[in-house]
Design a protein around this nucleic acid. Structure first.
Lengths: 242, 242
DNA sequence: CAGTGGTCTAGACCACTTA
DNA sequence: AAGTGGTCTAGACCACTGC
């Protein structure tokens, strides 16, 4: 309770907020089990039904996973999850294959005004800048530029020139405690610039799908910007509207 | 109950299925109020809590709208809803404006094998084929080809050459009893063909965003195929991942 | 067998809408 | 004031998991 600004949200929403904050702050680590529903109800002083409704909300937002007979667990970013929820590219037949990555550049720089704005930073703030190519079934069909605020990813670095199979979002969570909860994407068709065309083995001016993403953490703060260029000769970006 | 194939789904899921079928079959018309929760519970022989859970599922799928103090209503496809859920195109500043349409062609034909397949039809089935341009803020930036099975849209026709402001999905529901519940889209970047470039005022080979959509009705049957070509000079396709 | 989440019920009370 | 959905509680029982 807070006399100055009483929380008028329903009890279950307040309960959900409390539980979410514990997850966001790492009080319960990703992958670990959280207490049984009756225990939570007793601790928080609400009925089991209210706890259940709160947990249902967290489950729909995929912050937790509940399994009958086993318990409730804080969701960990597995490669499968990152691949299924945040990788919207498939082959023409609809098959979704895990890509590999080849890091071309990785540097820490001072953000220009244009780089700072989408991430809600001040111009000049320290920023990690990554450029990589991604291969699906051995073919280089994706170019990606990524910007990360140094403040959230201290000491971040990727090995240039080496092949990577790990999903970045798994790495963010494991090494920097940053969980990506959602992302917004804006798509456009562009003509390939000369250098990008060369990297993808295309002619200058070939049509490319540009995917501009801002990814947000559990507290809905922007923590990653990435621009993906996809050669759609053999792949599609898929979206579901419902 | 059915002795041969007993329904082992939870009661609330069975209840949800029953209510959904009534909506899909038009037992309750779009926009009309459905009975109060206690009445439904009594009629179906389940507890009010079970009915509530079933209605919650229908609400999340946007088949119904519940308003405290007023009642529960079958969702009607308003222009706003069609625009917000099924129109993913915005201006560069993120503004979403309602487009107008200019029908270029509208004909009923026998489906080729390629046209029949995505809609789950047999080759030769009757099909309505539409081509239209869409304007946002007076600028023609969208070309659209649409295919509809005659069986679901008997007598369908659009006035060629006239300006239209109604959303097609509102018209499908009002005039043909077809409610679009969800859609799948596959996106690619392509080079503009000569005739399409001409209609959009672009040069041949200019990059265009191609959006291939299959839309499904309440029973999850494919009922519309459409291919949209978007000039992304001043617009973006937006997607949310969460 | 003990412990977990999942289902189902029953009812009290609150908040909002309409008349 | 009457009627609606929204919240909150309390508890019984079921289904699944792992020891």
């Amino acid at each position: 309770m807070n006399a100055l600004r009483p929380d008028s949200r329903p009890l279950y929403a307040q309960t959900e907020a409390i539980l979410m904050r514990r997850i966001a702050e790492g009080f319960w680590a990703p992958g670990s089990m959280i207490p049984p529903e009756p225990d939570l109800a007793a601790e928080l002083g609400v009925s089991p039904g209210t706890v259940r409704k709160a947990l249902g909300g967290l489950e729909r937002r995929r912050l937790i996973e509940r399994r009958q007979g086993r318990g409730t667990f804080v969701a960990a970013h597995t490669s499968e999850r990152a691949l299924f929820h945040f990788f919207r590219i498939t082959a023409l037949d609809g098959q979704r294959r895990a890509p590999t990555s080849h890091v071309l550049e990785c540097a820490t720089v001072a953000a220009s005004a244009e780089e700072a704005q989408p991430l809600g930073l001040a111009a000049g703030a320290a920023l990690h800048r990554v450029k990589r190519a991604r291969l699906i079934a051995g073919a280089a069909c994706i170019l990606e530029r990524i910007w990360l605020p140094e403040a959230r990813f201290p000491g971040f670095a990727l090995p240039v020139g080496r092949e990577m199979t790990d999903e970045l979002y798994v790495l963010y969570q494991r090494d920097h405690g940053v969980t990506i909860a959602r992302a917004e994407e804006r798509l456009a068709a562009i003509a390939a610039a000369p250098d990008d065309a060369g990297l993808l083995g295309l002619e200058e001016g070939a049509p490319l799908l540009e995917i501009a993403r801002i990814a947000f953490d559990l507290q809905d703060r922007p923590v990653e910007r990435r621009v993906t260029l996809l050669d759609t000769a053999a792949h599609r970006y898929i979206a579901n509207l419902d």
